[in-house]
């Protein structure tokens, strides 16, 4: 089948800015995007640079943007990626381009190192002579995170990292989510405290992109949400993220609907110094009549809402006990 690969190219030695180049090749129907790229570099243009190694979706080398979304070239069937016979390939995002489809992944590795992605047993605790006892249920749960291959697809398409490159990002946080729950590790509480700081778990906007692009179905966002729950349960609530969540809960539970007027001050812990910079925004909102009303009456039927809360909480505590 005749296909066209539209590849974003950039050679730092000769190019001032990236350009697109189109390659039209005749390849078998069952080819992956990676197979087609290899055909190009071997038969047509040996200057085209991209990383690849295992070609079986386990080494994580061939991450790139395929039609605008990050993924593994080796795991993407060419046929499924064609639009009118063309597939567009670009380097991953949120990382500097080194050449063509090769990015410098240092920002990604930096975040991984930051979360101390290794077991830290208690120095005074002597481990068993043989293996640690771990329940098969926990192993099953953790294996969802363990299977992350560090390809960088989630980081590439993370919308928070796009505006704040210091955000630890989906992969590093997911990996931390394993270590926090690993019975061999002794730093769960410290880890949760560190992860609750700015650029950590509370900065995720839940845009779902990481879940969508992950080629190994790690669901990084769900791991981040789980970390939030664990942090709150561990009493680590002295931060805007945890307070913001609590403000939602309190308001709806109390009145049946969201009190937008107090949401911001509550999230900031009524801290006047922190709130001061928000004042001009508040004034502008008042002037343009966009400010929520300070009057926040209880809705009729709020008892039913409260009932729902109690039921859910009871359900969860039963689940936790089980």
């Amino acid at each position: 089948m005749l296909v066209t690969l539209r590849v974003r190219r950039f050679n730092p030695e000769t190019d001032l800015e990236p350009r697109f180049q189109e390659y039209t090749v005749d390849v078998p129907e069952h080819f992956t995007v990676l197979d087609a790229l290899i055909t190009i570099r071997e038969r047509i243009d040996g200057t085209l640079a991209f990383r690849y190694s295992c070609r079986m979706a386990i080494c994580g080398a061939c991450g790139m943007r395929i039609n605008g979304l990050a993924g593994l070239a080796c795991k993407t069937a060419l046929r499924s990626a064609l639009n009118d016979g063309t597939v567009t390939l670009e380097p991953m995002g949120n990382m500097p381009v080194a050449k063509d489809l090769v990015v410098n992944m240092e920002p990604f590795w930096h975040h991984l190192r930051t979360v101390r992605p290794y077991i830290e047993p208690h120095p005074a605790r002597i481990g068993p002579q043989n293996e640690y006892r771990i329940s098969p249920e926990l192993v099953d749960e953790l294996s969802e995170v363990v299977r992350c291959i560090m390809c960088g697809a989630c980081f590439s398409d993370c919308t928070v990292d796009e505006i704040d490159i210091n955000f630890l990002g989906p992969a590093a946080l997911a990996r931390a989510g394993w270590l926090v729950r690993d019975p061999r590790d002794s730093r769960a509480a410290d880890r949760l405290r560190e992860l609750s700081k700015p650029h950590g778990i509370w900065d995720c906007t839940r845009c779902f992109f990481c879940v969508q692009v992950c080629p190994k179905d790690v669901k990084p966002m769900e791991q981040i949400l789980r970390l939030r729950r664990l942090a709150v349960e561990a009493g680590i609530t002295d931060n805007n993220g945890a307070r913001h969540t609590q403000a939602f809960v309190d308001s709806v539970k109390e009145t049946g609907w969201l009190d937008e007027f107090t949401l911001v001050p509550k999230s900031w812990g009524w801290n006047p110094v922190a709130l001061l910079p928000e004042l001009p925004t508040a004034v502008r909102m008042l002037v343009r009549k966009r400010a929520p009303s300070p009057v926040h009456p209880r809705q009729p039927g709020v008892d039913e809402v409260r009932n729902l809360f109690e039921k859910t909480e009871r359900k969860r505590s039963v689940k936790d006990d089980a």
């Binding site: 290794y118 077991i119 481990g127 293996e131 640690y132 771990i134 329940s135 098969p136 192993v139 394993w178």
Partner: peptide, 11 residues
């Protein structure tokens, strides 16, 4: 295992 490998476990 002590370094942190997650191997499959029995009951």
């Amino acid at each position: 295992d002590h370094m942190g490998a997650i191997f499959s476990r029995g009951p």
